[in-house]
């Protein structure tokens, strides 16, 4: 948790002065947006967001990096673990037929293990999204002035 806050604080600072200043910045925009071309430019004159500009902000890049560095390795991980279970079942019959608890064999336990890893990854992602992705999304929405 601490690390997460530190990370976000750092990213914000790298672009502009700390939190309070940014808040003030936002306040101003509501009244005098014409004096404030930088903020205005994230939204075109007809009210559509300028996605190309938003895409190039550091906030967006950080968000994209955080997302992809979680989901792709995790996908590789659970696919590997699942395929290991499947391949062992198909090609290492004697190994997975080893009895462990009563007549319950290693294969059944490995299968149930997949249930456990699924729960862990699901909860892990929900937690990661809440702590590392959603705050960053908020930061991006604040900077660009475009809400969801």
């Amino acid at each position: 948790m601490g690390a997460a806050h530190e990370g976000q604080g750092y990213m914000t600072k790298a672009i502009r002065s700390p939190g309070e200043a940014q808040h003030e910045y936002r306040e101003i925009r509501g009244f005098a947006s014409f004096d404030d071309p930088e903020t205005l430019s994230y939204v075109d004159s007809d009210g559509t967001p300028n996605y190309e500009l938003i895409r190039q902000t550091d906030e967006f890049r950080v968000l994209r990096r955080r997302l992809t560095t979680f989901i792709f390795p995790m996908t590789a991980l659970f696919l590997a673990s699942y395929l290991t279970f499947v391949l062992l079942s198909a090609y290492a019959k004697d190994f997975v037929s080893t009895k462990v608890i009563g007549v319950i064999n290693l294969g059944i336990l490995l299968g149930l293990g997949q249930f456990v890893t699924s729960i862990i990854i699901t909860l892990g992602y929900a937690r990661y999204a809440k702590r590392r992705l959603d705050p960053q999304r908020k930061l991006l929405a604040e900077k660009t002035g475009v809400e969801e």
């Binding site: 967006f60 999304r137 809400e147």
Partner: peptide, 19 residues
């Protein structure tokens, strides 16, 4: 399609403009 591609990337990842 570059503009649409940028829009899709931003929307998919950040949810900006999704609603």
């Amino acid at each position: 399609m570059a503009a649409k591609a940028a829009e899709m990337e931003v929307r998919a990842i950040s949810g900006i403009g999704a609603r």
